[in-house]
Design a protein around this nucleic acid. Structure first.
Lengths: 159, 159
DNA sequence: AAAATATATTTCAGTAGTGAGACATTTACA
DNA sequence: TGTAAATGTCTCACTACTGAAATATATTTT
């Protein structure tokens, strides 16, 4: 009463694209597992780490800027910055030019934390990527940059 | 009172790995947005689609097999298969060799649904990948396969 | 300048999971 | 064989968001 397995598409453009989607997803999953392990070891989720890291490398950012960089919803950023603020790692400051808006910025404690853990995070990423040599990594960067940019510019499919 | 932005690492292995992580994440995000749009248009989340697709292309699978392919937690697969079962797309059947285990398999309705929407999903993926030509896609596959396999085999970092 | 529209954040209910532990069964070993 | 350890699924409390609607302020139009 069960159905026979259906064959995958075999025309080269579709078969190749599907295969690329699979290996791309798996690669991100494997790399992200290393990245995540390196942040949870310090009591931060990946997303919390991403916020601290953005503020660390860019300086104070409007909440909306942080959101667009890291999340889909604005509600999420309020929630996350609340949590980081409660832990004393981040604070909100007002924006002079627009009284609706608020900056998020690192507190001294938040700055000390991210300054301390970022190097080991970067090292974890470097190790996770070490299956490819430097030249291959550069080639992968070029290919993925094109792939991502073109896909982002494409209108969503109609079906 | 705000801190100056901290510079990113500049030693080539670390800088390149971090850059690769960024473009890799962005590429997956852009491609996945197209994949997701193609499934939600048919009333399925990506994960629900992934389950139906796995059963469509592999035939009946043990719940644990489906889980390891798609999720981290076993609780999630119970939840999702419950939902798909309620909608009449999937059913559980018993496993003769192991009475703890259960198969998930497509119902005729589930089979008809995935057979109908899989082609447009594959087409959406093909379009999403079209920023790269076939040869470049093949090269990306080779690089990402190595990257993912090596990262998956690496012990988690200690810091 | 008033009205309409747009934008930034917050609130809140809902969703898609995770993870730990419970239970049933199976497998390995003493 | 009996007992311990392992495995497959399910339950349940919890987490990290999403998305829509509310509020406050800005901007544009008339």
């Amino acid at each position: 009463m069960a159905f026979d397995p259906a064959p995958l598409p075999t025309d080269p453009p579709t078969a190749t694209a599907l295969k690329l989607f699979v290996v791309l997803s798996r690669a991100v999953e494997s790399i992200s597992a290393h990245a995540e392990a390196s942040t949870v070891a310090h009591g931060l989720t990946i997303t919390e780490f991403a916020i601290l890291e953005a503020l660390y490398h860019k300086g104070p950012l409007l909440l909306g800027e942080v959101q667009r960089k890291i999340l889909r919803s604005s509600g999420g950023i309020t929630f996350l910055v609340d949590k980081l603020e409660t832990r004393g790692l981040v604070r909100r400051t007002r924006c002079e030019r627009d009284r609706r808006a608020r900056y998020a910025e690192l507190t001294p404690e938040g700055h000390a934390l991210i300054a301390r853990i970022f190097p080991s995070h970067a090292e974890a990423i470097r190790r996770a990527m070490s299956g490819l040599g430097l030249a291959d990594q550069r080639q992968a960067i070029a290919l993925l940059k094109t792939l991502g940019t073109e896909a982002a510019g494409l209108p969503p499919a109609g079906g």
